Amino acid sequence: MTRTVYVNGEYLPETEAKISIFDRGFLMADGVYEVTSVIGGKLVDFEGHSARLQRSLNELDMANPVTMDELLAIHRALIEKNQLDEGGIYLQITRGAPADRDFAFPDPDETPSSLVLFTQVKNLVNALAAQKGIKVISIDDLRWTRRDIKTVQLLYPSMGKMMAAKAGADDAWMVEDGKVTEGTSNNAYIVKGGKIITRKLSNDILAGITRAAVLRLAKEAQMVVEERSFSIEEAQEADEAFVTSATTFVFPVVEIDGKAIGSGEVGSVASRLREIYIEESLKTAL
Rank of each mutant, 00 (worst) to 15 (best):
Q120H: 09
D148T: 11
K135M: 05
F118H: 12
A130R: 11
I149E: 05
R143P: 03
V116P: 02
A130K: 14
N123T: 12
L128K: 09
I139P: 02
T151H: 15
K135S: 14
D148Y: 14
V125W: 09
N123K: 14
D148S: 13
D140F: 13
I134R: 00
W144M: 00
A129M: 03
G133S: 05
L128P: 03
L124K: 02
K132P: 02
V152A: 09
T145V: 14
Q131K: 14
V152K: 10
F118R: 08
N126A: 07
Q120Y: 07
R146I: 10
K122E: 02
V136S: 01
F118S: 08
K132C: 12
D148R: 04
I137Y: 06
D141K: 02
S138A: 04
T145H: 15
W144V: 01
T119D: 11
W144K: 00
V121Y: 07
L142G: 05
D148G: 07
W144A: 05
L117I: 01
N126L: 06
T151S: 15
R143D: 07
I137L: 06
R146T: 15
Q131M: 07
Q131G: 02
I149F: 08
V152H: 10
K132I: 15
I137M: 07
T151F: 08
N126D: 10
I137P: 00
W144S: 04
L124W: 00
D140S: 14
K150W: 11
K132S: 13
R147S: 15
I139G: 02
L124G: 04
K132Q: 15
I149Y: 04
V121F: 07
N126E: 06
D141W: 01
R147V: 08
A127W: 04
Q120S: 12
I139C: 03
V125Q: 11
N123F: 04
T145R: 15
Q120M: 09
D141F: 02
T119W: 11
R143L: 11
T145E: 15
G133H: 06
K132T: 15
K132V: 15
I137F: 06
W144D: 01
Q131P: 03
V125R: 09
W144N: 00
K150Y: 12
F118T: 12
Q131N: 05
D140T: 11
A130C: 08
